[in-house]
C-alpha cells in the first residue's frame, strides 16, 4: 500500500506544479493521453504517468502496456532531466527504453524547463515586497549552501590528495621489508663470523 501513498503524494505535487507553471501544459501537449511507464530495477518498482491534458495521473505497480516504457536504476533517474542524455544512457546500457522515445523526451524537456515564478505565487499571501524578499533570501541561502558544499568538497579532495602524498605505497612497504630482511641476514652472517674469530 505504501506505493499507493507515494504515487498519491507524487500526483499531488505534479498537479500542483502544472497549476503553478502554465507553460508545463504546453510542454506536455505531446504527452496527452499517452502513458509513460518507468521501472526502477534496484527498487523493483514500476510506476506510470498518464497526462490527460489537464491533470496528471500517477499509477503505482503499473503492469499494463505503455506508449513508452523506461527501465533503469534509481541513480540514473536524475540524469533523465536532460533529454539529450537519453541516447547516451541507452548506449551505456544504463537505460532500456521500449516504445516512443519522444514521449520520454517530452516529459524530460517539460520538467527540465520548469521555472516557477515563486515570488508571484507567494505574493498572494505576503504581498509583493515580502514575497520578493523571501524568494531572494531563499535564493541567497541556496547559493550560499551550494558554495559551502563546493568548498567542503574542495577541502576534502585536497586533504585526500595530501594524505596520498605522505602515505607509504604498499610496494614501497614491501621493498622496505625485503631490504630489512636482507640487512638482518647480513648482520647474522657477520655475527657468526665474529664468533668464529673468537
Amino acid at each position: 500500500m505504501w506505493i499507493s501513498v507515494l504515487t498519491a503524494v507524487t500526483e499531488q505535487i505534479v498537479n500542483r506544479l502544472i497549476t503553478l507553471e502554465p507553460s508545463l501544459r504546453q510542454d506536455l501537449r505531446d504527452a496527452e493521453h499517452r502513458v509513460l511507464a518507468v521501472t526502477l530495477t534496484d527498487l523493483n518498482l514500476s510506476c506510470a504517468l498518464h497526462y490527460n491534458g489537464d491533470h496528471c495521473f500517477v499509477y503505482g505497480n503499473y503492469l499494463d502496456s505503455a506508449d513508452c516504457h523506461i527501465t533503469t536504476a534509481l541513480d540514473t533517474v536524475s540524469e533523465l532531466k536532460d533529454p539529450s542524455q537519453l541516447t547516451r544512457l541507452i548506449r551505456a546500457n544504463k537505460l532500456d527504453l521500449q516504445g516512443d522515445i519522444h514521449l520520454a523526451q517530452a516529459y524530460s524537456k517539460a520538467f527540465s524547463n520548469l521555472k516557477i515564478d515563486w515570488a508571484e505565487h507567494v505574493s498572494r499571501y505576503l504581498g509583493d515586497a515580502g514575497a520578493q524578499h523571501l524568494v531572494n533570501t531563499i535564493g541567497q541561502g541556496k547559493s550560499r549552501a551550494q558554495k559551502h558544499c563546493e568548498t567542503f568538497e574542495d577541502i576534502f579532495t585536497q586533504l585526500c590528495q595530501d594524505e596520498l602524498n605522505v602515505t607509504v605505497h604498499p610496494l614501497e612497504l614491501e621493498q622496505f621489508k625485503s631490504q630489512t630482511r636482507a640487512l638482518s641476514q647480513h648482520l647474522s652472517a657477520l655475527e657468526q663470523r665474529i664468533n668464529a674469530l673468537d
Binding site: 504515487t7 499509477y59 499494463d64
Partner: peptide
C-alpha cells in the same frame, strides 16, 4: 488508496 490501485490496474485509455 484501494480505489487508486483499481484505476492503475484498469488500463482505461482515451
Amino acid at each position: 488508496l484501494w480505489k487508486r490501485q483499481t484505476i492503475a490496474c484498469s488500463g482505461v485509455r482515451k
